[in-house]
């Protein structure tokens, strides 16, 4: 007979303490992520401004996607598409140079044959911009690129005779100039981060592969295209997905990189649209939420495409092959049975 105390001890479950420990996260997640997420969907079918309590069905979506008869609806529709277009432009413009640059640097930094001095130093320096908040980056670039002959970049260009004094380049309001600055700033902020991720992936590739390639006399281009790049694909896809999600939600720099309250329509992203429609009085919850949902759908669709790209083609082939073999085996067994 066991004593009751012994029984008691046996029935104590330590698992519950584990739940207690992870509870705070789930509470915070529930209140600040899940509820707002669901509420966004709800708000997207409700009215705007003083009519925020009225159920309006799909009308917000209809107005944003297809416009409408009156000027307000047409303006909103125009804005949404203008902003979606800007978002894509800004994302492409910062992602492509960012990936190219970080891939190049990652390959150089991990190459055993290249003995680069001060690798750690460069890695830190290149990662540093990522630590600076977007607000400071925006302030810095506004300062550097300010239009007029007093801006550092413009005054440099003027002093060296590239442009005339009376015609400074408008880096803040000009369509492609402002886009260019934002793309550059985004690239500058994020290439270090991407580089570190790619480096860790490259270092995960077995050294023996590189050595074997070396012994077989492969040149560095061949090593890059035949070994590094194929094995790096999952990481590149991962970077693509994360950067895409981040890029579609880009808000900080496009919002902050402007003078005063003047909107720059050529750098306004869809996230800025959402923010603006919500932060005017009367507040347009409906339009903001509908635009958020549209953004959500686009993000999920693009995310799915990326994942589809990630599923290994070789893997698929193997699976198909295995299936075929099983079929054959079945057939054989059938025929052998029949033969018997």
């Amino acid at each position: 007979m066991k004593s009751s105390a012994q029984n008691k001890i046996r029935s104590i479950s330590y698992a519950k303490y584990g739940y207690y420990f992870i509870l705070p996260f789930f509470i915070v997640y529930f209140i600040f992520q899940l509820v707002p997420l669901i509420n966004t969907f709800r708000l997207s079918v409700y009215g705007n401004g003083n009519f925020a309590q009225d159920y309006v069905g799909m009308s917000n979506f209809k107005i944003l996607l297809f416009g409408g008869a009156n000027r307000t609806e047409a303006a909103l529709h125009k804005d949404v598409f203008n902003d979606l277009f800007n978002t894509l432009i800004l994302w492409f413009g910062n992602f492509i140079p960012q990936l190219a640059l970080s891939l190049l640097l990652a390959v150089w930094f991990t190459d055993i044959n290249l003995k680069i001095k001060g690798k750690t130093f460069f890695k830190i320096v290149m990662y540093l911009p990522n630590i600076v908040t977007a607000a400071s980056v925006a302030a810095l670039f506004l300062m550097l690129f300010s239009k007029t002959k007093y801006g550092p970049i413009n005054s440099f260009l003027i002093d060296h005779g590239f442009i005339s004094e009376n015609d400074p380049i408008d880096f803040v309001k000009g369509k492609w100039q402002s886009r260019g600055v934002i793309m550059f700033a985004q690239t500058w902020m994020w290439f270090g981060n991407t580089m570190i991720m790619l480096m860790s992936a490259i270092m995960g590739i077995s050294k023996s592969l590189f050595e074997a390639a070396d012994i077989d006399g492969a040149n560095s281009r061949q090593v890059f295209t035949k070994i590094t790049l194929p094995l790096l694909r999952p990481m590149v896809i991962y970077t693509l997905v994360t950067s895409m999600i981040g890029g579609l939600q880009m808000w900080d720099l496009p919002y902050l990189y402007k003078n005063g309250t003047a909107w720059n329509k050529s750098t306004e992203t869809i996230a800025v649209f959402i923010y603006n429609k919500f932060h005017i009085i009367p507040q347009n919850y409906g339009y903001s939420a509908a635009a958020s949902v549209i953004l959500f759908v686009i993000t999920s669709a693009l995310g799915c495409i990326c994942f589809a790209m990630n599923t290994d083609k070789e893997d698929k082939k193997k699976k198909a092959l295995a299936k075929e073999q099983r079929k054959q085996a079945k057939l054989q067994s059938k025929s052998s049975f029949g033969g018997f």
């Binding site: 919500f278 919850y285 903001s288």
Partner: peptide
């Protein structure tokens, strides 16, 4: 727990548009 309380302060502006009702 600090992060949990952080939400209380700026919750309305940080948690996105739909949190405003809360």
């Amino acid at each position: 727990s600090a992060t949990a309380f952080y939400g209380c302060d700026t919750g309305s502006s940080n948690a996105g548009n739909s949190a405003a009702n809360d």
